[in-house]
C-alpha cells in the first residue's frame, strides 16, 4: 500500500517544482515551494506507516512536524520579503528584478 502514497507525494512535489520554474509571480512561486513541502510530508508519513525495512515507527511523523516548522519560518521570511519588494517596485513579477547580472564586456 506504500506506492499510491509515494505517487501522490511525488505528484505534489513535481507540480510544485514545475510551478516554481514556470511561474513568475513571487507569491505563486512561494506557494509552489510550500506545495513541494506538502509532497514531502505525505511521503514521510507514508514511509512511517509502511517502511520498506523494519517495523512502522513514528519517526516519519516527527520529521514532518519539524518540516512544518521549517516551512513556517520560511513562510514568515518569504512574506516579509514579498512586502518589501512590493513597497519598492509596486510589482511582484520576478522579471522586474534584473539589476544584478554579469557585465558583458
Amino acid at each position: 500500500m506504500l506506492l499510491p502514497y509515494v505517487l501522490v507525494g511525488a505528484a505534489l512535489f513535481v507540480l510544485g517544482l514545475v510551478g516554481f520554474v514556470t511561474r513568475r509571480n513571487l507569491i505563486v512561486m512561494f506557494l509552489c515551494t510550500e506545495l513541494m513541502f506538502q509532497g514531502i510530508i505525505v511521503n514521510l508519513v507514508a514511509f512511517g506507516r509502511y517502511p520498506l525495512r523494519g517495523e512502522p515507527t513514528l519517526d516519519g511523523q516527527i520529521f514532518s512536524m519539524f518540516l512544518l516548522v521549517v516551512a513556517a519560518s520560511e513562510a514568515a521570511l518569504g512574506l516579509a520579503l514579498v512586502v518589501l519588494l512590493y513597497r519598492n517596485k509596486g510589482t511582484l513579477d520576478a522579471n522586474a528584478w534584473t539589476t544584478l547580472k554579469d557585465a558583458t564586456a
Binding site: 506504500l2 509515494v6 507525494g9 512535489f13 513541494m36 513541502f37 509532497g39 514531502i40 511521503n43 514521510l44 507514508a46 514511509f47 517502511p51 520498506l52 525495512r53 523494519g54 517495523e55 515507527t57 519517526d59 516519519g60 520529521f63 518540516l67 521549517v70
Partner: peptide, 13 residues
Amino acid sequence: AYGFSFLYGVSGT
C-alpha cells in the same frame, strides 16, 4: 528534504 524522506523510507530509520 525530499531526498531525506526517501533515505528514511528505504532504511526505516
